[in-house]
Design a binder for these strands. Structure first.
Lengths: 135, 135
DNA sequence: TAAAAATCTACTGATATGGTAGGTTTTTAT
DNA sequence: ATAAAAACCTACCATATCAGTAGATTTTTA
């Protein structure tokens, strides 16, 4: 299951993608439109900014805006920032790999092989879809 | 990510499937072979028994045994028992459906549509594979 | 100079995770 | 009959994560 943080982040970005080319968008506008706690959303957008997906402007007339075209932002990349690993086991994660300490030999592990297959099928969807597909 | 409980459960069942037709298998044998905390594994096997996947026999010469052929036990079914929902959002879960309280209309939600696609791709793998494929 | 807006730091309550401890019941072998 | 073996049951615990809240600070604009 995705955390609410991830879900909120994706919904907020979709909202922003729909209104791109307009002036910066207020946190509070997004929070209200998407039924997200405003303070919680603050933290989420900040994280997305710190990871290069959003820009911001302070003061009156300020807000957040996308710094890339929606077509260029894959959903997989966003989930990795907001949620962490997409894979079902640490030992099959491409971006957050970790050895399972109970498993002596990964190449012999049948669970590993199965989860690689699941991962590849999931990524096929999440890497091919972009923010533009969510608009 | 799958919990350790789920991972341990799947590994334990795979171990048992490899030794099926032998006498009942001891918790402690599985725990040692698969590097799982013995007490933790007790709880996991008990749950699998209570859900009809395992039988048990008490006393000397006792232990746990599979009550179905490995070919008949889909990995998806096991994950649903051990982990819960396979879907990434409650609103797209087939077996654990829940409405998102922030979402006014599911049919209009683009995140919902995307996550249905992810779910279907995941299930395509997990429902077609059985314990026999993990041996 | 005041208001608006993002930013930062810290805290909180609830829940899940990954166990551990220790006793009880059932069964089998001696 | 009895002791050992094994599953079973109940309770507890430490830690981490989740989902949020509170409140002050900085920057920008009108």
């Amino acid at each position: 299951m995705l955390s609410k943080k991830t879900k909120y982040g994706l919904k907020a970005l979709t909202y922003m993608a729909r209104k791109k080319d307009e002036a910066p968008i207020l946190i509070s506008e997004i929070a209200e439109a998407e039924n997200i706690s405003r303070k919680f959303l603050e933290l989420i957008l900040l994280q997305l900014k710190n990871n290069g997906f959003l820009g911001s402007k302070k003061g009156k007339g300020g807000g957040y805006y996308l710094v890339q075209e929606p077509e260029m932002i894959s959903i997989a990349a966003l989930i990795r920032i907001l949620e962490g690993p997409i894979a079902l086991l640490p030992c099959v994660s491409l971006n957050f790999y970790e050895k399972c300490d109970d498993c002596p030999d990964e190449t012999q592990c049948s669970l590993n092989r199965l989860m690689v297959e699941v991962r590849d099928n999931t990524l096929k969807v999440l890497e091919s879809k972009t923010l533009a597909d969510l608009i």
